[in-house]
Computed example of a mutant assay.
Amino acid sequence: MTDSLLPKEIVDLARRVVEENAAAGRTVVLAESCTGGLVAAALTEIAGSSAVLDRSFVTYSNAAKQSELGVASDIIEAFGAVSVACVYAMARGALDRSDADIAVAVSGIAGPGGGTDGKPVGTVVFARLEKGQEQPEAEERFFEDTGRSGVRSQATLCALELLLP
């Protein structure tokens, strides 16, 4: 039984992330947009998470992505905030501004508005970058439009999976 406001599936995965990264002696940093801090919230539900979570940047606006993470305005103008180029820059910026070993960045369209034909609601892009790694790993996913909360929950699960060693 848990007293968490988050779904059990998210808390269970967050527990794995904390336990496995703590065992490996690794710390993590997050750069969140559409998840709005849910990934950090999931990790901090777990006792001992302070040994793993260095910090989290919730950069919901484009201006915050630029000022807090150093994402170049021309990246956002050319590719949009929901793009591989943007999450690459978010992950790099988070890692450069922290003492962490691994960064995960997430940006997407949770809805109900904001989608386009090319980037419909449910489009979420992730990047993962480890210290010393030249190029982040990135992927774009499409989550069924299960409502704003559903898209954000699915994105949170995916981001947590990317934090597993």
Rank of each mutant, 00 (worst) to 15 (best):
D145N: 14
F142W: 08
K119Y: 02
I109M: 13
L129W: 06
S107P: 08
S107L: 09
R148C: 10
I109A: 13
R141F: 12
Q133H: 04
V125Y: 07
A127L: 12
E140H: 02
G147H: 00
G114H: 08
Q135Y: 08
L157P: 00
R148K: 13
V124G: 13
A103W: 00
Q135L: 14
G108A: 13
A100R: 01
A110F: 12
V121M: 08
A100D: 00
E144K: 12
G150E: 01
V151E: 04
G122Q: 10
Q135F: 10
G115A: 07
G132F: 03
A110I: 06
R148L: 09
V104K: 10
S153I: 01
I109Q: 13
V125E: 11
S107M: 09
G114M: 10
D99Y: 07
I102S: 06
R128D: 09
A138S: 15
G122I: 09
E137H: 09
A155I: 01
E140G: 14
E139W: 03
D117I: 02
P112H: 05
L129G: 12
D99E: 15
G113V: 06
G118K: 08
F142H: 15
E134Y: 04
V124K: 08
T156S: 03
G122W: 11
P136R: 02
L157M: 03
A110Y: 10
F143E: 04
E137V: 12
T116L: 08
D145S: 01
A105D: 07
A103D: 00
V124C: 11
E144S: 14
V125S: 12
A138M: 06
Q133T: 04
K131D: 05
A155G: 03
Q133W: 04
D101I: 05
F126W: 12
F142E: 01
T116R: 03
D101N: 14
D99P: 02
Q135W: 09
F126Y: 15
V104M: 10
A105Q: 06
A138Q: 04
G108N: 09
E134P: 03
S153H: 08
T123P: 13
P136A: 05
L129F: 10
G150D: 01
G108S: 08
E134C: 09
A110D: 11
A127I: 12
L157E: 00
G150Q: 01
G147C: 01
E130G: 15
D117Q: 11
G132Y: 02
E140F: 02
G122R: 07
F126G: 13
E140T: 15
R128A: 14
I102E: 12
E144F: 05
K131I: 07
R148P: 07
P112F: 07
Q133A: 15
V125K: 05
Q154Y: 01
D99G: 15
V151K: 05
K119I: 02
A155N: 02
R152P: 05
E140Q: 15
T116I: 05
G150W: 00
G118E: 14
V125W: 08
E137F: 15
G114A: 11
G132W: 02
F143H: 05
G118L: 13
G115F: 11
V121K: 08
G118H: 10
G115C: 11
G113Y: 07
V106Q: 09
A100L: 03
R148E: 04
P136C: 04
G115S: 07
